[in-house]
């Protein structure tokens, strides 16, 4: 059985102008699934619908035995802590230290009083240190997040997501704000961490080469629909044309 199963998902920000039309996907295994497609085709919306940062208009999202699309309140938050997310602009809380940012991955598990006093359990703190060491930032634990470079920040962002002990990792263009070399390093890190922690990853990404190099499966989106779903080497010039070029492209 698959980890995540999306059925007939649709989203309209403005009635009558759907961004996502009819998405059905099954995500399984532990590899990277990359979503590619032109800007404005609803990749970010799709990712954000999965953990309900955006509410879908219709459709079902099944994850760990629950339909996420129907959850609310405490149940939704409980589901969210099992889904880690990595953001394009890192979205670290800039005025907090690196350590606090990593530990914020545990916020779904602790009470407000605990969070206020920063009294995270020893296990959590050990794990956070291990993760920081794993991504090569052990010496940065007490530095403020806004003192870090882009690549370092994204590493912290990944630690925060993994800290949640997620059953699924989402990444919204995690390399778009980084230089090419750092982008590759971040992709390697995500792939390795996903393997080590046995988590499937859904990444939406702009750079097709990176997607082909790291993903085990590629989903091509265009106009709010899935137009390609298969192995990276199945991406031919034709299919790329279908995703990025074609009439849609010329019309706008």
């Amino acid at each position: 059985m698959s980890t995540l199963s999306i059925r007939q998902l649709a989203k309209e920000y403005v009635a009558g102008k759907p961004v996502l039309r009819d998405i059905s996907l099954e995500i399984e295994g532990t590899g990277i699934t990359a979503i590619i497609g032109p800007s404005g085709t609803g990749k970010s919306t799709l990712i954000r619908c999965i953990n309900r940062l955006i509410d879908p208009t219709s459709g079902e999202i099944h994850f760990e035995g629950k339909d996420l699309a129907k959850l609310a309140g405490a149940e939704l938050r409980a589901a969210r802590r099992r889904i880690g997310m990595v953001f394009q602009e890192y979205n670290l809380v800039e005025r907090l230290t690196v350590m606090e940012n990593v530990l914020s991955g545990r916020l779904g598990y602790v009470s407000a009083w605990t969070a206020f006093r920063r009294k995270f359990s020893n296990d959590d703190i050990q794990r956070a240190f291990d993760l920081l060491k794993r991504v090569g930032l052990a010496d940065f634990a007490n530095r403020r997040a806004d003192e870090l470079s882009g690549g370092q920040r994204q590493r912290v962002g990944i630690c925060r997501a993994v800290m949640q002990s997620p059953g699924l990792l989402l990444a919204d263009e995690p390399t778009s704000s980084l230089d090419p070399k750092t982008s590759v390093e971040i992709m390697e890190l995500m792939r390795d961490l996903a393997r080590e922690n046995n988590v499937p990853v859904v990444i939406n990404i702009h750079q097709v080469q990176l997607a082909q190099r790291f993903a085990e499966r590629i989903i091509g989106m265009s106009g709010g629909l899935v137009v390609y779903d298969g192995a990276p080497d199945g991406l031919t010039q034709d299919t790329l044309q279908k995703i990025y070029g074609g009439e849609d492209w010329l019309a706008t």
């Binding site: 940062l53 938050r77 997310m85 953001f87 979205n91 914020s104 916020l107 779904g108 407000a112 969070a115």
Partner: peptide, 13 residues
Amino acid sequence: EAIRATGASFMNT
């Protein structure tokens, strides 16, 4: 948004 995505409650956010 990032804090909300971790499943944090309103107070924790």
